[in-house]
Design a protein around this nucleic acid. Sequence first.
DNA 1: TCATAAATTGTTATCGGTAACAAACAAAAG
DNA 2: CTTTTGTTTGTTACCGATAACAATTTATGA
Lengths: 340, 340
Amino acid sequence: MVTIYDIAKYANVSPMTVSRVINNSINIKATTREKVERAIKELGYIPNAAARSLTSNQTKTLGLILTDITNPYFSKIARGVEDVAVEKGYRVLISNTDEDSDKEVNYIDMMISARVDGVLITPTSDKTIDQVERLRKHNIQVVLLDRTIEGFEGDYVIGDSYLGTQQLVQHLIDYGHQNIALINGPANVSTARERARGYLETLKQNGLEVYEHYLSELDYKHAQEGKAKEILKRLLSLEADKCPTAIFAANNFIAVSAIRSLRELGLSVPDDISVVCFDEVEPIVYFDPFFTVAAQPAIEFGRVGIQLLIERVEEKEAGIRQQVILPPVIHIRKSTMKRS
Amino acid sequence: MVTIYDIAKYANVSPMTVSRVINNSINIKATTREKVERAIKELGYIPNAAARSLTSNQTKTLGLILTDITNPYFSKIARGVEDVAVEKGYRVLISNTDEDSDKEVNYIDMMISARVDGVLITPTSDKTIDQVERLRKHNIQVVLLDRTIEGFEGDYVIGDSYLGTQQLVQHLIDYGHQNIALINGPANVSTARERARGYLETLKQNGLEVYEHYLSELDYKHAQEGKAKEILKRLLSLEADKCPTAIFAANNFIAVSAIRSLRELGLSVPDDISVVCFDEVEPIVYFDPFFTVAAQPAIEFGRVGIQLLIERVEEKEAGIRQQVILPPVIHIRKSTMKRS
DNA sequence: TCATAAATTGTTATCGGTAACAAACAAAAG
DNA sequence: CTTTTGTTTGTTACCGATAACAATTTATGA
C-alpha cells in the first residue's frame, strides 16, 4: 500500500509536505507542489481515510438507516441521499431495520463503531429515542426521516401525513363513500398516528360516524397477505349498512396486500370497493396508473434529509431546529370510484 | 469520546489488557475480564473502527456499486447483500453509477480511499476492467455482479441471459409469433450481448429470418419513453408482413417504457402486440401479475455475490475461481398472447 | 522451600495521517 | 551587507488500537 511516506521519499520531501499538497495548503512552492503531485500520480496514491479520520475526528461517512430498501419509497429516498452525499464528499453506510428495534440497535452500534459523522434514520418506533440519545452521546448528529418520535428535539424531514390523509378521505367522501375503513400502520409510528388523526377528524368534519370495527393495524411491511385477508374478511362480514365501501390503506405495501386479498375474496377494485393509500406504488404508475394515492416526494425526502444532516455535521453548534414537512400530492386514479 | 485508555484507567489495568478483553484473547484472569467488561458497559465504550483498521489492515467494510438502487431488481440485490454482510460482521458502502463510467471511476476512488476489503460491482461496461485492475493493485478483492466484462479473471455471479432469452423467444414462437423484435441493452454490457445471442440463435434454430430492422438498443435505464417511442414507431411502420407481433425487451425498464409508448401509439398489450422481458416488474407481480418475464433471483444474486466476496476477503490466496450462473425462471403471464 | 514453567499483565513501537512547533531559506528593509 | 520579516519545509508527538516483546505474578514439581 502506498502512503505519504512513499510519496515523500519518491519526491524527496518530507511526509508533511506531501500532506500539505494533498490538503491544498497555502505556502507551498509551485515546483514542490508539482513534484509531489507527479509522485502521487505516478505511484497512484490515494489517502487512507481511516488514518485521516483518526486525527481529524471526522470520517466523511454518514449512516442511513431505513426500514427496507426494497420498498420503492425507501429506495428512492436512498437514491436522493446517495446523490447529495457524494456530491458533498461523503460516503454512505446503509442498513435495513425491517421495523425491528433490535436490529436497529445493532445498526446503531455499527454506526458508532464506524464513527460516522451523522445518521439519517427512519426510526422504528418511539423507543428509538434511546438510540438517538446514544448517538448523540457519541457526538454523532442525528436527523429523522419520514417519521418523528416522541420527545425528539432536533431536525427532521417528514411528509404531511395528516394533510394527505385528510385529502384522501375527503376524496372518498366526495365520491359518495360513507363507510370507510382504515388499515393503519403500527400506532407506535408517528405517521400512523397522524394518519389516524387525519382519518378520524375528516370523518367527524363530515358528520360521519366512526365504527370501532373500521380501525385495524398492519405492519408497514411487505407480504402480509395473511393478516390483511383476515382483516378484510372481518370488515366484509359486517352488516350491509356498515360494510365498508372504501378502504384507506396507510401505505403502499398495505394497499397491495389489501387489493390482493380482496381479489382472493372475490371482490374487485374499484367496482366493489375503492382503495386509497399513502405513497406511490411503483412502477405501476408509469405503466398503468391505477392507485389513487397521496404521493410523497421520496427522492426529495432523501435529498433534504441528508442536506440537513450535512449542515449539522459541518457546523456542529448550528442554530435553530430544521423541521421540514413536505406536502404530499394527491393523484386520483382508477382504484377509487364514485358511489351511485 | 471514550477510548481503551479511559477504560484502562477506570478499570485499573493497562490499555493492552482492555484490548485483549475486547478481542476475547485467552489468558485473561476472570476477575480482570469482568472488571474490564463492567467498565466498558458503564462508560458505553465502542471500539473505533478506524484505529483498528490502521493496524489490522482491514476495515470490515465492503463496497457495493450498482447502476441504480431505484430499480427494484437492484434494490433486491442490495437487500441480499446487506443481510449477508451484516450477518458476517461487515458494513456496506453503497453507490449508483447510472451506467456512467465516469461516475464509476469516482466511486472506485471512494472505495479505495475507504480501504474497503472488497467490492461487489455491476460494471458499467467492458471498460470497467481498468477499474478492476486498479482495485486489485490496492489489494482490494473484486467480485462482479449481474454482468461480466471482457478479460476479467475472477469471481462473478450472473444470470443465464442466454438461457432465459432462449426460453422467452421460444415461448413467443410457440405462441405463433414469427416477427419478434429485440429492444436490447447496450452492446458493451455482457448481458445485452448474451441476450442478443440467445435471440438470434433461437430464431435460427426455429428457421426464422432475422430482419436487421428488428434490432435496436436502449440503455438499461429508467424513463426513456422518448427513445422507446421512436424505436417503436419505426418498428410499427414496417410493411405488414414484416411488422413485429412481439417484442423482446432486454430488461424490465425497457419493457415498461415500451408498453407505455405502445399505449401512446394506440396499441394494447397483449391484444395487438406481445411483450416479454428480463427481470421481474415489481410490485406489479404481487398485485396483478401481468408481465411474461424471465425472472432472476435478485436477492440470491446479492447474497451469493457478497458471500463469494467475503470468502475471498477472508482467505486472500483462495483457490479456484467461483463463477456462479443462476438460471432465470420463466413466468408466462398476460403480456403475451397466442397468435390465431 | 526454591527453581522453573505457565499464566497473566504491561511496555514500546507502529499503522498513516496531521497539528503544532521548529528550522531553514528567501525576500524586503535599513 | 546585515537585519528583519515572511515563506517554505521539516520534526515531533499524537489520534486509538494492537503486535511483539518484556515483565510480573502464579502455579507446579523436585
